[in-house]
Computed example of a mutant assay.
Amino acid sequence: RDEMGEIAQLDEEVTKAPPGLEALSATAKLARQPAFMDDNHIEVLIDGVNTFNAMLEGIARAKKYVLFQSYIIRADEIGERFADALIKKALEGVSVRVLYDGVGTTLHRKYLKKLRKAGVQICRFNSTKFSTFNIQINFRNHRKLLVIDGSTAFLGGLNVGDDYLGKYPKVGPWRDTHCRIEGPAATTAQLSFVKDWFWAADEMIQLDWHIDPVENGEKALVLHTGPADKGETALLAHIAMVNAAEKRVWIANPYVVPPEGLANALELAVLRGVDVRILVPKKNDNLFVQFASETYAEDLLEIGVKYYRYSKGSSWWISKLC
């Protein structure tokens, strides 16, 4: 009960939305989440080497707890580096929790055993929680999230595996984007983990929710969405951002099959003179979606959207930038 009260007080940290983004702020409130928060530092991390190094450095600095979540965790070279870092912190007395998706990740017992032996609490997100007969293969958890002591959060498109470092010859270079957030907005990312952990482990975690502001920081909004939302939170948020654009809307996404509402918002943006561009990989990891994207590309080009293909090697990526 005390923990729920602490979480509820996050609303006290919410600040006024930047001009033009009031609808986006309202979308967060619709999803019963904190909206914009002041005094944060945000750093964009490009590709696997920069991202993984920053995440491992963050884990090494943890003093109280580490919350680590990924759709895919591979027991390869980089996966072992993460395991070693998490084990080291757990042995130092830091609380460490790991959450992975039951479909996206397949970890062998040896990997799991050494984590648990060191005191790492590890749990699988499974859509069949309540009934083995109610299999929802599409009800997956694709979040890639790391929270350090409640004050620093890493989130974006990178799972944990050597393929995200370009070490799979058949895949080639992997272009992706992550970010690091320091400040009060990191608690919203933390809230996302708490909800997912409660679903998977039926445990409410005791954490820090009052985070000091960053000097000369900036506004940030962390919006977590999923299939359990009562409304179309993610769609509404994207439409709100496109509608608010005055100069440009640049989107990087490997899966461009926009719902009608978002396609209409992009068309309106073009009509009012906004520079709308979409960047997709030349090679996609899902042929069905690639074919569907090609079909939509024709429609988007007709309404004036500029459409580009990223062709550095056989690059794939899963970050969604807008």
Rank of each mutant, 00 (worst) to 15 (best):
T225Q: 00
G313P: 03
F133G: 14
K312M: 07
K306L: 07
L266W: 08
A62L: 01
L56W: 14
G102F: 01
Q9I: 13
T106H: 07
K110R: 04
N53H: 07
V289H: 08
V98W: 01
V222R: 06
K283L: 14
A23D: 09
P281D: 05
F288R: 15
E246Y: 14
L300D: 01
I318S: 09
K114E: 15
K320F: 07
G172V: 15
R277D: 00
K219E: 00
I303V: 10
T225S: 04
D101Q: 05
E218G: 05
A297L: 06
L287Q: 15
E12S: 15
R248Y: 13
E232V: 01
E298L: 12
I122K: 00
N286D: 15
W199A: 15
F82C: 08
R309Y: 10
A62M: 02
I7P: 03
G5C: 06
T51L: 04
V305A: 05
Q206G: 10
L91T: 13
G119A: 14
K283E: 07
A228N: 03
G261I: 13
L165E: 07
D163W: 14
E182Y: 04
V120W: 13
I73F: 09
I148W: 11
I205G: 09
G102S: 08
G183L: 13
A200K: 07
Y310K: 08
Q206P: 02
L107H: 09
L300Y: 11
L56P: 02
F125Y: 15
A90I: 15
T51Y: 10
A263F: 14
G183E: 10
K282L: 13
L112S: 03
D212V: 06
E13C: 15
Q206W: 01
K219F: 01
M204F: 01
V94D: 00
L301C: 12
S95P: 00
S131K: 10
V274R: 08
R143C: 09
A201W: 04
E302C: 02
N159F: 03
G104W: 04
E182K: 05
R74C: 13
G119S: 10
V276C: 04
D163G: 11
H142D: 03
L56G: 05
Q206V: 13
T177R: 01
A263H: 14
L158C: 03
Q290N: 13
E203Q: 11
I122P: 00
I181P: 04
A263V: 08
V14C: 11
Y71E: 11
E267D: 11
R74M: 12
Y308Q: 09
G166Q: 05
G58V: 07
R61L: 12
E77T: 14
D76R: 12
S95V: 08
L287T: 12
D285W: 08
I181E: 04
A83I: 03
W209F: 15
D84S: 13
L91H: 06
A245N: 05
I303C: 06
A54N: 03
A245R: 12
A62K: 04
Y111A: 02
I7M: 11
A85W: 09
R248M: 11
L321H: 13
L112D: 02
K63W: 08
K230S: 10
C123N: 09
L300V: 08
R1A: 11
L236G: 03
R124Q: 10
A17N: 09
E246C: 13
I73T: 08
D176E: 11
K312A: 06
L279Y: 15
S151Q: 10
V274F: 10
Y164H: 12
E13D: 14
